[in-house]
Write a protein that binds this DNA or RNA. Structure first.
Lengths: 218, 218
DNA sequence: CAAATACATACCGACGTGCGGTACTGAAAG
DNA sequence: CTTTCAGTACCGCACGTCGGTATGTATTTG
């Protein structure tokens, strides 16, 4: 295949293909040769020119996965027109209403055969997203009086772990009913921390989302 | 190597060695040959006589890991002298006081390089431990009036996910202070569900445990 | 003795990766 | 505008290792 004048396009092509295959067959059951075969003429040398290992491709893929949602978190975190509690409310409304499939990712991620991918998400949640996005919001909430807790770091972790992992239908698939119950338990948990961030609009959206997932499975 | 008259000893030897290596180097970076080399004369044929694949060894290893703690859960679940809330209380007191290192496992499990192992633990928690051990206890608690919730299944999942994963020092290492804070947040979460299962004895034990872990790291 | 079991040995195809080589690019030099 | 040339995108094969299998053999069991 001819040399590409914009190598970043080649990198993106590799990531697109790798992501799709990782989702379809799992990271471990996707060989580098599989990726090559779906690259349309590119060779093994091309891959190892842009990435130093197969693992390196996975890292890039997961980075691209979390980048978008982290961007959303950053924007909300930096708004100056909302209290801490209102920001949390906004985050959950956004993350629920956002469709899982967008233009980049035409395949709905499936973590059932992807221990490595789940592992990355888990650590991104605890090591990156919670301290960098949720924690500042909780701190602000403490300052402005809209949130009360003695342990903001741990509260941020627990909330995001529940939301990003436990309630994530890509990780633990649930029936519509179960998803709804999870959300109600989550709501009650937040209320236990004095955080009543759930309104009827969010509840409505959740029920919609759950029914969509249910239909896609069949 | 001579044939063993008690093949279960060979199986246990394989599992001992595999477990140690998985913990030291991670599942993926442990080759079958690595296991063989640490078996003291046994060969590849021996391994593939007792296990059908490397993955099969991992399953056996994780089963042995969770068996002990699940046994403890079963005993408490089946006691007839305690209310639901008291059983939960007992479980947490037990799991905190139980030393992580026992005679079988001389290596403290470390999940940082073991996506597969963490994956297994996560699914055992949600698919097995929560519904089979915690859920019946919560149901009993609902019956005897010591626990109140509309969604026992999801509450069981959330509680065990927080306890087994989030608060697990083998998965997310924390300083003594962080562990303590996690526990306090956990406590507040349970209180939000009307469950006040934490007493001063448990708090004391937690602080001890945290300081032990802190020392072992250095 | 025969069947089942507990291993050992030799070997296979597929895998991730390294590397010597090639062909293209874009900018500087003439 | 042409020539030159260093940098790099990409090729494709060779290598060592991997998980797994087929088969052989000694030992135990019934």
């Amino acid at each position: 295949m001819a040399r590409n004048r914009h190598p970043e396009e080649t990198v993106n092509l590799i990531l697109d293909v790798a992501f799709r295959l990782f989702m379809e067959k799992g990271y471990e059951h996707t060989s580098v040769q599989d990726i090559i075969n779906n690259l349309g003429g590119l060779s093994k040398g091309a891959i190892y020119h842009h990435f130093k290992s197969k693992e390196d491709i996975l890292v890039a893929v997961t980075d691209r996965m979390t980048a978008e949602s982290n961007q959303m978190l950053a924007v909300i975190r930096d708004r100056s027109d909302l209290s801490g509690k209102e920001k949390l409310k906004t985050i959950f409304r956004e993350s629920i209403s956002r469709p899982v499939q967008n233009d980049i990712f035409t395949v709905a991620p499936d973590f059932h055969n992807n221990p490595k991918l789940l592992f990355s998400l888990l650590h991104d949640t605890i090591d990156n997203a919670a301290p960098n996005y949720i924690l500042p919001i909780i701190r602000q909430g403490i300052s402005d009086g809209s949130i009360k807790t003695d342990y903001p770091e741990q509260l941020a972790e627990l909330i995001l772990l529940a939301a990003n992992v436990w309630m994530n239908p890509m990780i633990f698939d649930s029936t519509e009913e179960e998803s709804y119950h999870k959300f109600m338990v989550f709501r009650q948990m937040l209320q236990g921390f004095g955080l009543d961030i759930v309104d009827s609009e969010i509840l409505e959206r959740l029920q919609e989302l759950a029914s969509i997932y249910e239909k896609n499975k069949q």
